[in-house]
């Protein structure tokens, strides 16, 4: 008598296919990694360092209520989020632009404090009237100087916007299509 085996019946849930074409699959994967792995780099000067100092020196930033990986990068080449705080003088701005151009694609910018956002109280002939004169800025954190919590809140807002595709990231044009070719 042959043994009877009752094979377990697996009820497959209806999982929708991620995508049918590889191009959109890579895009979605990339989008997922963008909002799940934040790689900020801090460029901070003067009094805005009050709130940023502990963040800059810590390896990882914890965003409350979010289970995401946010690792602070020591150099701008490995980062995709630039967090700038402090007075941006006209002599400094070319160097800051160089830092921005070295970053990964896609890239986002958080401007911290009144000086980096709009010139602040020191607005004069030697000061850039805001970071947006140099490159596109995604999130402005108010305060003079802002606290640590405010800067983390700025990061959280940026993460949410990236996740919801509300943020127009500066992407390298046709990078994916070039890779597929």
């Amino acid at each position: 008598m042959s043994a009877r085996f009752n094979l377990p019946i697996i009820k497959h849930e209806r999982v929708p296919a991620l995508t049918l074409s590889s191009e959109t699959f890579l895009e979605q994967l990339r989008h997922w990694s963008n909002f799940q792995y934040l790689l900020p780099y801090f460029a901070q000067f003067s009094c805005c360092s009050y709130g940023m100092e502990n963040l800059y020196r810590s390896g990882e930033i914890e965003i409350a209520g979010k289970n995401i990986f946010c690792s602070v990068q020591p150099v701008s080449r490995q980062a995709d989020i630039l967090i700038v705080g402090g007075v941006i003088s006209k002599k400094l701005s070319p160097y800051l632009l160089e830092v921005y151009q070295e970053m990964l694609f896609p890239r986002w910018v958080i401007s911290v404090g009144a000086c980096a956002s709009a010139g602040g109280p020191f607005k004069s002939y030697a000061i850039e009237a805001g970071l947006s004169a140099l490159f596109p800025v995604d999130v402005y954190v108010p305060g003079c100087p802002p606290t640590e919590k405010a800067i983390i809140e700025g990061l959280r807002i940026l993460q949410k916007r990236v996740e919801d595709r509300q943020c127009s990231a500066v992407t390298e044009p046709d990078m994916i299509s070039r890779a597929l070719r």
Partner: peptide, 11 residues
């Protein structure tokens, strides 16, 4: 130096 020149004295 001069990267954070704010021209405070002029301002």
């Amino acid at each position: 130096v001069g990267f954070s020149h704010r021209a405070l004295e002029k301002k």
